[in-house]
């Protein structure tokens, strides 16, 4: 019985991902980051906002594994709480992108006509602009802060999901089973939400996951510019920004938050890659 269950697990998509070396390792890294983000107050050794000026800019030690910042705050605790900020912003932003992008892309691909041409023109227009520039334009409008960062990043990545979903829906809408559903009298809403989108979902989910990694970098960049989370909320980019003034005396303030970003993003990319392999959808992603 156990053998049968373990064979079933090994042949399932999740099993294939977790049992591959890079999938397993990246899943472990991601699990640690997510646990830190969710249980930040429980796992961080100190409170993230308690200042202790006599302990300012202390190098890593047993008491403070990653050292302290210019206000004597424990860097490890701030990085753990920063994980919460970064992940929340990235996940919410990409959630906004996926939700709006899928709706626009599905409607454009399914109905075609003028609406499709307008959506395609808007997507093509934003495609050549770097996400950072789109995000900066939006921040200029909405103003700096955590909420506006989420909106800015969400809109910056919109084109990607609209394009991907549109391509998937265009490919699927002429399939025989869709024709059959139409002939049975199903409405547009039913066809799009019950048949087209569920089938278009796997590549979008994987693309969404990979985009979450890029969104973490974009959030950190905006935070570094002072346009993201405002103090005292800890964010990885914001920590590095304040660390630049201490670069000669406390380089660890810059090194550790950057390392946290790099490890998280590499883990997301490797995990996404492992899912692409397991689902065998590389061609669908590339064609879109």
């Amino acid at each position: 019985m156990t053998t049968l269950a373990s064979t079933e697990f090994a042949s399932s998509t999740l099993g294939k991902v977790l049992l591959s070396p890079r999938g397993g390792l990246s899943a472990l890294c991601l699990a640690i980051v997510i646990i830190c983000a969710v249980f930040a107050p429980l796992v961080s050794p100190y409170q993230y906002d308690i200042q202790n000026l006599p302990l300012a800019n202390r190098e890593p030690s047993w008491a403070h594994w990653m050292g302290t910042d210019e206000f004597g705050r424990d860097l490890l605790s701030r990085i753990i709480h920063g994980a919460r900020t970064s992940l929340t912003v990235a996940v919410v932003a990409i959630g906004i992108s996926v939700a709006i992008g899928m709706s626009l892309g599905a409607a454009a691909g399914y109905f075609g006509g003028l609406f499709d041409r307008l959506v395609t023109a808007a997507v093509d227009l934003s495609w050549s602009f770097p996400e950072i520039l789109i995000a900066l334009i939006l921040i200029a409008i909405v103003g700096p802060g955590l909420g506006s960062t989420m909106i800015a990043i969400g809109i910056a990545y919109l084109a990607q999901f609209t394009r991907l979903t549109r391509a998937q829906v265009m490919a699927l809408k002429n399939e025989t089973y869709i024709e059959a559903t139409k002939n049975l009298g199903a409405g547009h809403f039913h066809i799009i939400f019950r048949h087209l989108l569920p089938n278009a979902l796997p590549p979008v989910i994987v693309a969404g996951m990979l985009a979450t990694g890029n969104a973490i970098i974009l959030e950190a960049t905006l935070g570094f510019f002072g346009l993201g989370a405002q103090p005292p909320t800890p964010s990885w980019g914001g920590m590095m920004s304040s660390g630049t003034a201490q670069i000669f005396i406390a380089p660890w303030i810059i090194i550790f938050p950057g390392l946290a970003i790099a490890i998280t993003v590499i883990a997301i990319n490797l995990f996404g890659d492992a899912i692409i392999e397991a689902l065998d959808i590389r061609n669908r992603l590339r064609d879109a």
């Binding site: 630049t244 000669f248 810059i254 090194i255 970003i261």
Partner: peptide, 28 residues
Amino acid sequence: LLGSTVPSFWLGLLLILLFAVQLGWFPV
């Protein structure tokens, strides 16, 4: 992999740390 995952501003800061602050080869 590194080029597509390491934030460019962090890489810039690390380059400053190594080549400008530690080695003094280039201006900060």
